[in-house]
Design a protein around this nucleic acid. Structure first.
Length: 287
DNA sequence: TTGTGTTTTATTGCCTCC
DNA sequence: GGAGGCAATAAAACACAA
């Protein structure tokens, strides 16, 4: 193991330590689990740094720069438990990594919830309260922030995954909708073509059966191509004819043949649907 | 009991800020 | 330049199946 710090003071609570510790702490104020902690988690004046129960896990406490009170605290426990012969081992063991007690961790967790950054004052205070080195507290917060960040990343990943799936579904639905609409447009186009075909056949029959026009053809007349127009007063019918004519003039188609990719790149104006510029003018005047 | 994977504590080196 | 944060990593402690 790298590093030269010695946090020795091996206190393995699993050796019946919790019970002894409880006895030892009987005279001290032990908050119940339901008792709310100080909001900033700076323990009350006069309360002991060990005023929490140790719930029997295998945990150890290290304390390098708090030899005074804390060491004597644990010496009391260990002397009771193991006797003097263990003390030498106790204080001369090679350095080992020590887990914090459950309560120390709980304390730190609460404090972390309040604020995940550690100002020097709070660090010192927490260290004092928990009987740890300030550096240990700092390290704990650092590692805790790293764990929090990892969790957060996992959450973010899940969120992104979920919204990706939603978007994917939406896209699939839109594709289906697009195909459906495309089919509809094709059907309507066919219908219109058929209708126009019938109309023009009917018109041919009329031309054959009727006599030539009596009136001279006015070349300036807007209806010059329709010499057999009905009464001029019937403007509605006239407009209808013009509309039908405009719709199927080669230069101004309203329903162009749809190519496979004609939706992939929307036109400059998504409302044009393949109209020529002059067709827009026509529609403006027609309505 | 042991092998193995996971979690926790701690170090190191680099970076940023004051 | 020192303090503090972070990422990467080591290593001890722990959990658990076989």
């Amino acid at each position: 193991m790298a590093g030269g710090r010695v946090f020795s003071c091996n206190n393995t609570n699993s050796v019946g330590g919790s019970n002894n510790l409880s006895v030892l702490l009987q005279s001290q104020r032990v908050p119940s689990s339901s008792e709310p902690m100080d909001p900033l988690f700076i323990p009350r004046p006069g309360s002991s740094p060990y005023s929490f129960s140790v719930s029997g896990t295998r945990s150890m406490v290290s304390f390098e720069d708090v030899h005074g009170g804390n060491r004597s605290f644990f010496r009391s426990f260990d002397e009771e438990e193991n006797g003097d012969e263990d003390l030498d081992d106790y204080f001369h063991q090679p350095e080992k990594k020590r887990r914090l007690t459950v309560d120390q961790v709980q304390f730190l967790e609460k404090s972390f919830e309040v604020e995940n950054k550690l100002e020097p004052e709070r660090k010192t205070q927490l260290a004092k309260e928990l009987g740890l080195q300030p550096r240990q507290v700092a390290i704990w917060f650092q590692n805790r922030r790293a764990r929090w960040k990892t969790k957060q990343l996992e959450k973010d990943y899940d969120t992104l995954q979920a919204s990706f799936n939603t978007l994917k579904d939406d896209y699939g639905n839109l594709l289906k909708e697009k195909d459906k609409l495309k089919q509809e447009v094709l059907q309507l186009t066919d219908k219109l073509v058929m209708k126009e075909k019938n109309n023009s056949e009917l018109s041919d029959v009329n031309t054959v059966c009727q006599e030539p026009p009596q009136k001279p053809v006015d070349s300036d007349s807007p209806h010059s191509s329709y010499p057999f127009e009905p009464d001029q007063s019937d403007t509605s019918q006239d407009e209808e004819d013009n509309l039908g004519k405009a719709l199927f003039q080669p230069s101004s188609y309203i329903f162009p043949k749809l190519e496979d990719n004609d939706y992939s790149d929307p036109p400059a104006s998504s409302c044009s649907y393949g109209f020529h510029v002059e067709d827009h003018a026509f529609w403006s005047s027609a309505y």
